[in-house]
Each structure stands twice: as structure tokens, then as C-alpha cells.
């Protein structure tokens, strides 16, 4: 039987660009270049490797996001995913983590899955909670924050390097995993991959396709509200000295002045 893998990927504003908030205090996605979240490239990579190991597998990439989010899907398809699903709806504007997990879970169920692969966190929101939320909603084991992952005979195994310990984890499929940037370098799309991606199917679903009411998502459905967002005041320019043989001592003097020594 074929192994159905769904990879959740997010389209995010470029971290090296000038990220900011829109007037309604949502992340401004219009004025900044976007891209496939780098941390989700690791998820696509691990999904492709798991698919390679399986006799028969299909990798679907799924994103919830605006029109431009198709770029993220194209990138994942050019890396080697088989097909893509884009959930797009004007009512999704301003959706928070709880709402996003609802949309992802419904879409994953509609697509059909044995394994969901997510990134460790999105590079814009950096909450790192969506995978746990999606697992809770789907009622499947969460095997998250893995730096190593494998699937064999219906069992997923992986290593989670936590603060206090490194743990070996194991769960039965269907399951959800998330992978860290320690899981292995993501491949670059080849020219052939880029050409092939143009012919791969991208389905578009809206909220009605997923039986979700507009009030459940978007700013209206949000469980949290950002009340103010202020640019952090620029740090006052510090003292910079050039080392001419006494740099270490000068630094010690500064630290002593600040009572660190």
C-alpha cells in the first residue's frame, strides 16, 4: 500500500528583508518578498527521503496562505514533491495558530494521510506550536522536533534532542512528525526538477471545501489580539575601539565599570 505523506509548508516574509506589521497589526505580507520558510525545506527533504525508502509513496505539500504562497509550493515541487494543495481564502487573513491548525487539520484529513511532516517552527511567527496543535486535532501521535527520522513497517522512529536529554521516540502510523534544521541539509532543486514542477498538479481549496465557517478563522476567529506593535528603539550607538595591543584590558575596564567584574 502506498505511503501518503503530507508536508505542511509555510510561505513567509524574507527574514533578511525589512519585516513589519500592517495597519491591522497582522504580519505585512504585501510589501516584503516572501519565500518557502527555510525551516520547512528540512521537512520537505525528510519527506522525500522517507518516500525514497518506501516501496511506494506519494508526497503532497500543503500550504495555507495568500496567492503568493504558490511560490512556496512550486519550490517544494521542484525539490521533488509529487503534488500540492493550496488553501486560500480571503477570510483567512489574520488567522492565528489555533485557526491555522484547524485549516491544516481539515485539509490533511481531506487529502488523506499516513504521515504528516512539518517544520520545527515558521521563520516569521516562530511559535513552534502548529505541529502539536495539528496532531491534537488529528488525534494522531506527535513525534516532534526530530533531528533524525525514519519510517519502517508502519512505525516512525526518531531522535529528539531536548534540553535535559536526547530521546529516542517511536510511534505507529498514522502520525505527525516535525523535523529540525539538524535533520540534514535540504536539497537544491535541479533544473530538471524545476521543469518537472511546472507540470505537477496544484489544487486550490477554499474554506467551503473544508467545511470551515468564516467566523472560525481570520481576525474574527482569532483567540488572541495584538494590541500594540512598536519598532524596538535603535540601540544607542556603543563605544567601539580598535585593538592596538590593549583591547582586552580596555574591555575589562568597560566590564568593571558595568559591575560585571
Amino acid at each position: 500500500m502506498s505511503l501518503r505523506i503530507v508536508v505542511t509548508v509555510k510561505y513567509v516574509p524574507d527574514a533578511t528583508g525589512d519585516r513589519h506589521f500592517a495597519d491591522d497589526l497582522t504580519v505585512d505580507r504585501d510589501d516584503v518578498d516572501g519565500l518557502l520558510s527555510e525551516l520547512d525545506e528540512y521537512a520537505v527533504e525528510q519527506a522525500l527521503q522517507i518516500a525514497d525508502e518506501a516501496d511506494d509513496a506519494e508526497v503532497t505539500v500543503l500550504t495555507v496562505g495568500p496567492e503568493d504562497a504558490k511560490d512556496a509550493l512550486r519550490k517544494a515541487l521542484s525539490m521533488g514533491a509529487d503534488k500540492a494543495i493550496h488553501v486560500e481564502d480571503d477570510d483567512l487573513h489574520g488567522t492565528d495558530a489555533i485557526g491555522t491548525s484547524l485549516v491544516l487539520a481539515k485539509a490533511i484529513e481531506k487529502a488523506g494521510f499516513d504521515l504528516v511532516v512539518s517544520g520545527m517552527a515558521s521563520t516569521d511567527g516562530t511559535m513552534g506550536v502548529v505541529p502539536a496543535l495539528v496532531a491534537e486535532r488529528l488525534g494522531v501521535p506527535q513525534v516532534t522536533l526530530l533531528s533524525e527520522v525514519s519510517v519502517e513497517d508502519g512505525t516512525v522512529k526518531g531522535r529528539r534532542d531536548g534540553d535535559a536529554a536526547s530521546e529516542q521516540l517511536e510511534a505507529q502510523l498514522p502520525a505527525l512528525v516535525s523535523v529540525t534544521d539538524q535533520s540534514g541539509e535540504a536539497r537544491y532543486p535541479s533544473f530538471k526538477g524545476i521543469m518537472a514542477a511546472k507540470k505537477k498538479p496544484v489544487e486550490s481549496w477554499d474554506l467551503s471545501d473544508l467545511d470551515i465557517e468564516a467566523e472560525e478563522v481570520g481576525l474574527d476567529g482569532a483567540f488572541t489580539k495584538v494590541e500594540t506593535a512598536d519598532a524596538r528603539p535603535a540601540r544607542t550607538a556603543g563605544t567601539i575601539v580598535k585593538d592596538e595591543g590593549e583591547g582586552g584590558k580596555q574591555l575589562a575596564e568597560f566590564l568593571a565599570g558595568q559591575k560585571f567584574i
Binding site: T239, I240, V241, G245, K249, Q250, L251
Partner: peptide, 28 residues
């Protein structure tokens, strides 16, 4: 990184850091 600092030393860390460590030791 110098855009963020309260105090910065432009120099080779292999000179500056051991000197700093020594100086702290002496002061203590």
C-alpha cells in the same frame, strides 16, 4: 554585530580574549 553593541573591540579574538581573561583574573 557592531550595530548592536554597547562596547565593541575591533581586533583578533586570539589576542583580545586571552588578554581579557587574564585581566579579569588579575582584577579578581
Amino acid at each position: 554585530i557592531f550595530e548592536l553593541v554597547d562596547y565593541g573591540v575591533v581586533g583578533d579574538l586570539f589576542d583580545v580574549v586571552p588578554q581579557l581573561t587574564e585581566e579579569i583574573k588579575t582584577r579578581k
